[in-house]
Each structure stands twice: as structure tokens, then as C-alpha cells.
């Protein structure tokens, strides 16, 4: 972590596989926010996935081979922060890579990278003054969903809320169920689709009851789940990434 966070002028951006396949908007919106802040950014070439789907299913060996590709791409000799616009991927790299690569030639690099990795909203929370100066504004009623791994592994709870609160006209509602799992759970969503969907529904009911216009989260996995279910149900709540909301507020 740089000594003086206010001075951060350049970062690397790891889009993650979900950002490469379904959540491209999240990645471009992240870039727009960084642009607005005047922070240089680049996507290192050759990143793939952090290995999480296999790791969380208990398959360490395929997880390792995939994560190794990403590790190589991220280990560029610099000590620039690596921003990850996905709470669970950030948690995977920051906390679990050391374990995954323990005893392998990549162990040292894994530790190096773990130190550089920053979950996006916690990084943005260090720039709330700069954000406020840009006068973001959007008249919406917003509920926030805590991603489980971001909340309980990285212990990040306030940061995304602080970021959202820089937006003029934005009303942030604390949902009763903000900390309850959305039911995504990676492969769980495919193994037990009915249970997974039912879990999403309890969250969605809560949002509808709280009359929010937009549901914001910092994890594209949770958003894929909640947006997907709401789209199927025709629920009139948008589910967007904190980067997307900020990009819109800054536009």
C-alpha cells in the first residue's frame, strides 16, 4: 500500500473473468471513475481468472494452474496497487492465494501480489474528498448489498457506503438483509438453482419493501445473481456495481 494514499496516481486494473465475460460494463465504468479522478490505470495483459470457482469447489490443482496465469500477468515488478472490482476475487487473491501457492515456486510472488491487491470500493473510499470535488450527483434511493467474502473475509463494510455518500441527491437505505447472502455462491448457483433463487428472492423482497430504485454492490457475482432474478421477475429495481453508479453520478 502506498504511504500516502492521497498521492496514488497510477494503478493496475484486474478485470477478473466475470468482468471479461458478463460484467464488462463494470470494468469500463471503473475506468471512467478512475479517469475522472485523474488516476492512471492499465489492464495488465494476460490475466485470466483468480481461480476462485475451482478453489471454492475444493479443486486446488485446476485452481492453481489458472491462478498462476493471472499471477504471472500481475507480477510486473512494480508495486502499483492492483484494483479488483469484485469483492470475492479481491478476497481470493488477498487471502487465499498464499494458501493456494504454498510450497510452490510462486509462493513468494503470491504474497507480493496479495499485498498489492485492493478491492475497488475500499480504494475509492480513500478518495472521497476528490470524488466530492467532482460533484457527483444522482437522485436515487439506493440499497447496498454486502458481498459475503468482502464483508466477512476482507472485513470491508463502510467503504462502499462512504463512496456512495459522496453523491449528491443519493439516499442510502440500510436494508435489513444487507449482510445476508444473495444465494450466488459460485458453483452453488448451478448445483442448487432452486435454493439459490429462493435465497435471492428473500433479498429482493426486502429491497422492494424498502422501495429502493437501485441496488448497489461491489461484487459482480452477487449482481449477476440478483439482477438475473429481478430481470426474470420483472422487479423494477436496477442492480448495479458501485463503479457503474459512480460513473453515472459523475457523468
Amino acid at each position: 500500500m502506498p504511504d500516502d494514499v492521497g498521492m496514488t496516481v497510477a494503478v493496475q486494473l484486474f478485470p477478473t473473468c466475470i468482468g471479461d465475460v458478463v460484467a464488462q460494463q463494470t470494468v469500463t465504468d471503473t475506468e471512467r471513475v478512475l479517469d475522472a479522478l485523474g488516476i492512471d490505470h492499465q489492464r495488465p495483459s494476460g490475466t485470466t481468472c483468480c481461480g476462485q470457482p475451482a478453489f471454492n469447489s475444493g479443486h486446488d490443482s485446476p485452481a492453481r494452474s489458472v491462478a498462476k496465469a493471472t499471477l504471472k500477468a500481475l507480477d510486473d515488478g512494480s508495486d502499483l496497487p492492483i484494483l479488483v472490482p469484485s469483492g470475492s476475487c479481491a478476497s481470493m487473491v488477498r487471502l487465499h492465494w498464499r494458501e493456494l501457492f504454498h510450497g510452490t515456486p510462486e509462493a513468494e510472488a503470491a504474497t507480493r501480489i496479495a499485498r498489492r491487491v485492493r478491492e475497488l470500493s475500499s480504494f475509492l473510499a480513500e478518495h472521497t474528498d476528490a470524488l466530492r470535488d467532482l460533484e457527483p450527483s444522482l437522485a436515487v434511493r439506493v440499497g447496498y448489498h454486502d458481498s459475503c467474502h468482502m464483508l466477512r473475509e476482507l472485513r470491508i463494510k463502510e467503504a462502499p457506503r462512504e463512496v456512495l455518500q459522496t453523491v449528491a441527491g443519493l439516499e442510502l437505505v440500510e436494508l435489513d438483509s444487507s449482510e445476508r447472502c444473495c444465494g450466488f455462491g459460485g458453483t452453488f448457483s448451478g448445483r442448487y438453482p432452486d435454493v439459490s433463487v429462493a435465497m435471492a428472492d428473500t433479498k429482493i423482497d426486502d429491497m422492494v419493501a424498502a422501495k429502493v430504485d437501485v441496488l448497489v454492490s461491489s461484487d459482480p457475482g452477487c449482481l449477476m445473481q440478483l439482477a438475473g432474478r429481478m430481470s426474470r421477475q420483472g422487479t423494477p429495481v436496477r442492480a448495479v456495481h458501485v463503479a457503474t453508479l459512480m460513473a453515472e453520478a459523475l457523468a
Partner: peptide
Amino acid sequence: HATTLCGA
């Protein structure tokens, strides 16, 4: 496998 590993 019948859990989301949410950690609650």
C-alpha cells in the same frame, strides 16, 4: 457443497 461459504 450445499452451502455458499458465506461465512455467517
